[in-house]
Amino acid sequence: MADNIYLPHPVTIEKVTQEAPGVRTLRLKFKDEEVARTFEFKAGQFGEYSAFGEGESTFCIASSPTRKGYIECTFREAGKVTSALAKLEEGQTMGFRGPYGNTFPLDEWKGKSLLFVAGGIALPPMRCVIWNALDTRSNFKDISILYGAKSVADLVYKHELREWEERPDVNLLTTVDPGGETPGWKGQVGFVPAVLEKMNPTAENTVAIVCGPPVMIKFTFPVLDKLGFKPENIYTTLENRMKCGVGKCGRCNVGSKYVCKDGPVFSRAQLEALPAEY
């Protein structure tokens, strides 16, 4: 008999990290030892996270598949379920089902340089890939990260940003929107697309991974064009509303493609072939 695809795995919250105002990371461990031992996923995949009594919410898995024994999710408190998840404490039980969706083609990127461009709360899907790439560092040439947020307080993974900054094999650039800087801010001030243009990364043998709010993506793509990035070398993730995560509930499709099954990872070339329904 088939398993019930809607039944979540109970998971224990091992660690709660307050990343920024209203943004938290939960480190989760499967309660079932067999599941904990056999669970596998790849960078880019997502899951449905349950706050029992309130419902489910969709987020990417924000931890790297190279870090075994747990998964992490990072979310902003925004609706009914995320508010409930934000109230949960270490040691409490929630639910997870997944992994769902496709993955970033890290195998195809071997031998290439990676340029990560992220805005705001869209760093989590990329953090998974970043750590995956850093944990298999020899597979890639240069790794550059451009990350921007509204203000210094809104930057997530502050601890890891420092870690990346200190690593000699990572080129990290952080920026905040004008007005979002603090007196001691040493990073850039300006919107992501403008800073990217100034950063002037090479498109040569480089894959760009871009995640952020729609307006950031909209203005970042033309900059990448200018820099010479081909649409097939630009990747992003789509975040359409989902309920089931497995291609049945009918919400997340963009034309004939289902973000939950064919995505969430799309190259810009793939996006260009789709209608603008995201």
Binding site: I5, K248, K261
Partner: peptide
């Protein structure tokens, strides 16, 4: 077709 797409919908 919808409920059986790749994964079986048990209910």
């Amino acid at each position: 077709g919808i409920f059986g797409w790749d994964t079986e919908d048990k209910p």
